[in-house]
Simulated scan of single mutants.
Amino acid sequence: MSQTTVNPGQLQPPAPESGTRAAPASAADRAIKRRRVLDILDAAGRDSLLLSTHTALTWYLDGSRVHISLAGDPVAAMLVDRDGDHLVTFNNEAGRIAAEELPSGVALHTAPWYGSLHEAAAALGAPGSAPLAEADVAAELRAARQQLLPAESDRYARLGAELAAILTDVLSTAKPRTTEFDIASALAGRVVAAGAEPLVLLCNGSARSQFRHPLATHSPLGRRAMAVVCARRDGLVANITRWVRFDAGSPAERDAEARIAAVEADIFDATVPGTTLDRVFTEIKSAYVRHGFGAEQWEQHHQGGPAGYAGRDPRVTAAVTDTVVQDQPFTWNPSGPGVKIEDTVQLTGSGVQVLTADPRWPAATVNGLARPLTLQL
């Protein structure tokens, strides 16, 4: 196994005309993240930690891309020890990672493309001392990444605004004869052009509105449609749902849309620093009853949860007892028959800030917060 020593001068942002990418990492944010991981090692009485998942790696590297296939495992593993940070990647990935993804201060090592990244990373630690496995401190790592730091908060806000604008642009051109695949492909093209990865693309027309996770088909939209995008850029995942229709909608339909927004408002009210997520989950179940959806509606679809470096980090259930903190991002997605509402938000000192917002999209004020309506064309 060989080590590549990277000169910090090689990691400066490239000239604009080069068209290449520079690692997005903030040195200040990364220093805080390293301190948080060292605190985990201190609490566990260990000297090193092996990071191996997309969520942990992109968080700790502060936005580096460590994937090739969106469906595959990371092409890197990270050993964090008391002496420094050691990233191991395959020999055929090292050039790109060194040039475009490696934060300053991280030592890059290579393993053969047919080798084991985890074994190579573990071998960098002190002899006779196995590193702590990521799975052994999953809850502690989740807590470490809950509170977004300044630079990553800025990156997340930019992604959210761009994603919301993409939904507005694409859905504003839709027609009843437009197919679900037409919408999904247009969204995918715009997301990729924005430098992001489309992790989830869903669309249903009026003939398929009963499905909560509608993978697109060749079916036309008809009189009403939903589009969902979950997109990742610099490791952060933003999630958004929008609806469009080509008539005024029925009274029952408009009533259900207002009631699901009221459910979401109750969830926002319950999501405050210091509370625990199992308590928020209890409030979610009560909100469905209060707003006329029935006591069992929450069982028909997951309700969302904390967001950030995973689509949900984690999905909230009665068993999740994490404590909510300020500057933590969330994506709640309450839904009912034929209705759903979803945006990525961040808790700030002044309350809930909606990140996936476009001022061009029609909205109504619900409990003091602008929430998306169905776009009528």
Results as ranks from 00 to 15, higher is better:
residue 1 M to A: 11
residue 2 S to G: 07
residue 3 Q to I: 12
residue 11 L to A: 10
residue 13 P to N: 07
residue 14 P to V: 11
residue 18 S to K: 07
residue 19 G to N: 11
residue 19 G to I: 08
residue 22 A to C: 05
residue 27 A to W: 01
residue 27 A to Q: 09
residue 30 R to Q: 08
residue 35 R to G: 15
residue 36 R to T: 06
residue 41 L to H: 04
residue 47 D to Q: 11
residue 52 S to F: 02
residue 54 H to V: 07
residue 61 L to V: 04
residue 65 R to V: 13
residue 67 H to A: 09
residue 68 I to R: 15
residue 70 L to I: 10
residue 74 P to M: 13
residue 75 V to S: 06
residue 79 L to C: 11
residue 81 D to H: 08
residue 83 D to G: 15
residue 84 G to F: 15
residue 85 D to S: 13
residue 85 D to K: 00
residue 91 N to R: 12
residue 92 N to G: 04
residue 93 E to K: 07
residue 96 R to P: 08
residue 96 R to A: 13
residue 100 E to T: 12
residue 100 E to L: 02
residue 102 L to Q: 05
residue 104 S to E: 15
residue 105 G to R: 08
residue 107 A to I: 06
residue 109 H to R: 10
residue 110 T to I: 11
residue 116 S to M: 09
residue 120 A to F: 04
residue 120 A to S: 15
residue 121 A to N: 12
residue 121 A to F: 05
residue 122 A to P: 00
residue 124 L to H: 03
residue 125 G to C: 10
residue 129 S to M: 04
residue 130 A to P: 04
residue 134 E to F: 01
residue 135 A to S: 13
residue 139 A to M: 06
residue 139 A to R: 11
residue 145 R to H: 06
residue 147 Q to R: 01
residue 151 A to Q: 01
residue 151 A to S: 09
residue 152 E to M: 14
residue 156 Y to A: 04
residue 164 A to R: 05
residue 167 L to P: 00
residue 175 K to G: 03
residue 178 T to K: 06
residue 184 A to K: 09
residue 185 S to G: 03
residue 186 A to K: 06
residue 186 A to V: 02
residue 187 L to P: 05
residue 188 A to R: 15
residue 189 G to K: 08
residue 191 V to R: 11
residue 192 V to G: 00
residue 193 A to Q: 13
residue 195 G to D: 04
residue 196 A to V: 05
residue 198 P to E: 10
residue 198 P to S: 10
residue 201 L to A: 03
residue 204 N to V: 03
residue 210 Q to M: 10
residue 211 F to N: 10
residue 212 R to Q: 10
residue 215 L to M: 12
residue 218 H to C: 00
residue 221 L to N: 06
residue 222 G to C: 12
residue 226 M to P: 00
residue 227 A to Y: 07
residue 228 V to D: 01
residue 233 R to C: 09
residue 237 V to P: 05
residue 240 I to Q: 14
residue 244 V to L: 11
residue 246 F to M: 09
residue 247 D to H: 04
residue 255 D to C: 05
residue 255 D to Q: 13
residue 260 I to H: 11
residue 261 A to M: 12
residue 268 F to G: 00
residue 273 P to Q: 10
residue 275 T to Q: 09
residue 276 T to L: 03
residue 276 T to S: 13
residue 280 V to W: 14
residue 281 F to I: 01
residue 282 T to H: 08
residue 285 K to M: 13
residue 286 S to R: 15
residue 288 Y to M: 10
residue 289 V to N: 03
residue 304 G to I: 03
residue 309 Y to T: 02
residue 309 Y to L: 07
residue 310 A to D: 15
residue 315 R to S: 12
residue 317 T to C: 05
residue 318 A to C: 02
residue 327 D to Y: 05
residue 330 F to L: 09
residue 330 F to V: 02
residue 333 N to T: 14
residue 334 P to F: 07
residue 340 K to R: 12
residue 342 E to D: 06
residue 343 D to Q: 10
residue 343 D to K: 00
residue 346 Q to I: 15
residue 349 G to K: 01
residue 351 G to Q: 08
residue 351 G to P: 02
residue 354 V to Q: 02
residue 357 A to H: 13
residue 365 T to F: 02
residue 370 A to K: 12
residue 371 R to V: 09
residue 373 L to Q: 14
